[in-house]
Design a protein around this nucleic acid. Sequence first.
DNA 1: GCTGAAGGTTGATCGAAATCAGGGCTTAGG
DNA 2: CCTAAGCCCTGATTTCGATCAACCTTCAGC
Lengths: 248, 248
Amino acid sequence: MTLRQDIHSSGIPVLCLPCEARRRGVCGALEPDDLAQLAKTSSRHNIEPGVELIGDAEAVDCYSNVLSGVVKLTKSLSDGRQQIVGLQFAPDFLGRPFKMKSAINAEAATAVSLCSFPRAAIERMMKQSPEFVHRLLKQALNELDEAREWMVTLGRKTAPEKVASFLLMIARNIDSNVDPAAMSACFELPMTRADISDFLGITNETVSRQLTSLRMDGVIRIENNRRVTVDSMSRLERRCGGRGAIAV
Amino acid sequence: MTLRQDIHSSGIPVLCLPCEARRRGVCGALEPDDLAQLAKTSSRHNIEPGVELIGDAEAVDCYSNVLSGVVKLTKSLSDGRQQIVGLQFAPDFLGRPFKMKSAINAEAATAVSLCSFPRAAIERMMKQSPEFVHRLLKQALNELDEAREWMVTLGRKTAPEKVASFLLMIARNIDSNVDPAAMSACFELPMTRADISDFLGITNETVSRQLTSLRMDGVIRIENNRRVTVDSMSRLERRCGGRGAIAV
DNA sequence: GCTGAAGGTTGATCGAAATCAGGGCTTAGG
DNA sequence: CCTAAGCCCTGATTTCGATCAACCTTCAGC
């Protein structure tokens, strides 16, 4: 059992060594012992685009770290109208503590890889590691900030501003050739026009028209319907409506 | 010092005895000793409607329990467009851990009474009481659920549905003559038409028209512009669009 | 009393985005 | 090869809610 030996000698499970969740995600809160304990219960999954996660047999009663790809969280009205209420990128933590049935659906927007844990293992960890709960709180508050940011977009921005804001958000979240304050960016849209419209509360026709408009004006270039190049981020930012929120 | 004696004999500070925050809010997580320690740093404030809380001198660097009234959380775009991104009722906890400057403004929508704590006291309590952090996490997740619920309303509901949904939300949150599954309800609107429009992402004219429409159809009655009576909650619910979200 | 401001309602008009409809491109499968 | 299904784009038309405007009520201050 040289593997086990290695695990114990390094203190950190080998699987976790290169993991983003350990560096920037919730696992970063754990001591090597706790991490080892949690890692024993973990399992990796690769999910195809379009597959439901919550409600799906293999993922029920699980919490997961998103290791790569994009997961969309959606809510629906009974007549079929749908709204995407969140996007999770690596190394976000997926799952809703304290609640058996969340009224939210999760679906892989792109190909996604997950590191999943049984519900019980996470709940045990919440009991034994205050630092872990602390980290969950931080993530929840970040998601809350993001949700509120999008409420402004949904409620008060025009269609052109919504689409520009969406592109900006994606550029900043997805691994792309962007250093934070870069001039330009190039990335793959993680979702279809229909998904984008469900995210922005508009129709896919309108998304299409606004993308065309941005392309015509030279703000972006699009290849293969998915690959977007932004030459000047500041030009894109100027299309997002009032420059962010104003703190008092 | 009979007062101090009383405090120590009961274990719970007298001020906290009748407090909703101790029963249902974050203080409910605290042991008597911790509660006493926190209570020593607390101060009560009564705030007039329309007063800014965050950014206001007396409230800066504070966390507060909302004891009564309604606080609105808003975000603004630089051109003046505004969106209300949350409403806090008693006994919600007000304040943003881990962040000095939140890009959110808080304002008393009605007369509000607060129980405020210095930032340092709350942060100390977060270090020494895991149960307290646990409770903060629960509240954050509840707020996240509410925010996402409203994203559906903002993005996918029509103006009539938005107004009906708003009334339903208020009826369920404000102390009113409503038992949870009551047939009817009667309550005071905690905000102006302009505020409601900022909450729903529509104009105040549209809010006014929809309220009139609901009144004409006999779904609600309105006195003094503020006092609303709903005779049949189920009729109101039917006006809210698709009946809530569908879990998988 | 008068005056002005703030909040609310209502009507007329306009415009942004939804809806309806058609067509192109790519991909999978027979 | 052809066909069908997805996904995307674009044009024509319609519609919902914004905008513009007028007016009412209440209330505070002179």
